[in-house]
């Protein structure tokens, strides 16, 4: 004969209330901990102010997933034996988003690069260049794994290199030339020039002669 155990409903209710309270307290402690980690107010110090003349005429945006995989013997052993399911692995995964700006340094335009004749304007722009490659702290998210500050910075720098080369591969420099020419044509046409000729100065690498 099985004996039926009757738990009074009041006890069940009390236990549920206690459980809910504990959960609330635990979540609150965790939230407070996250909120308390605030930076202290510090002044923004201006180091340098520089006058520039940059025409940024193309932008590139990319999202990258960077995996710094643990290839050590132990990691392989853990994978082979399935122990990584228990202990986890030491792979480091970062999700980055970055921006590249390309265009022209207009302070390099010389007087001879700019001329007008009747209703024709001729302008020669300096060589197109990458102006900025930006991955700021709010642009990357540490998804998994642990690394030191210096290691993390090293990995983000790799992402910056990749971002720059992807931007060049995607044609950001050609795009910058095309859109700069378009912008300048519109600008000068609005000033009354019927013909606006925009050309680009190319930069060639000169190899030093041997023996020098």
């Amino acid at each position: 004969m099985r004996e039926e155990v009757n738990i009074p409903a009041g006890y069940v209710l009390a236990a549920a209330v206690v459980l809910a309270l504990l959960t609330f307290l635990l979540l609150n402690v965790k939230k407070q901990r996250e909120e308390r980690l605030q930076i202290e107010q510090t002044e923004l110090l201006v180091d340098q102010v520089r006058r520039i003349g940059e025409l940024s005429s193309a932008g590139f945006y990319e999202e990258l997933v960077l995996t710094d995989r643990d290839e050590s013997v132990l990691a392989e052993l853990k994978r082979a034996t399935g122990l990584n399911r228990l202990t986890g692995n030491d792979d480091f995964v970062v999700i980055c988003k970055g921006r590249v700006r390309a265009g022209f340094d207009l302070t390099k335009v010389q007087e001879t690069d700019f001329s007008t004749s009747g209703d024709t304007l001729r302008l020669t722009l300096p060589p197109v260049e990458i102006l900025d490659v930006v991955i700021n702290p709010t642009d990357y998210e540490l998804f998994a794994g642990h690394r030191s500050h210096e290691e993390t910075i090293g990995i983000v720098l790799l992402a910056k290199q990749r971002l720059r080369s992807d931007a060049v591969r995607s044609g950001i420099l050609d795009q910058a030339e095309r859109s700069a020419a378009g912008t300048l044509r519109r600008f000068f046409s609005a000033m009354g020039y019927r013909e606006v000729v925009v050309s680009f100065r190319k930069e060639y690498l000169l190899r030093p002669e041997s023996g020098l």
């Binding site: 932008g59 590139f60 999202e63 995607s170 859109s179």
Partner: peptide, 15 residues
């Protein structure tokens, strides 16, 4: 590194 999204666009900004 794995690329997820990439986008190229024209801009006209005078810095």
């Amino acid at each position: 590194l794995t690329t997820r999204i990439e986008q190229l666009r024209a801009t006209a900004e005078l810095g």
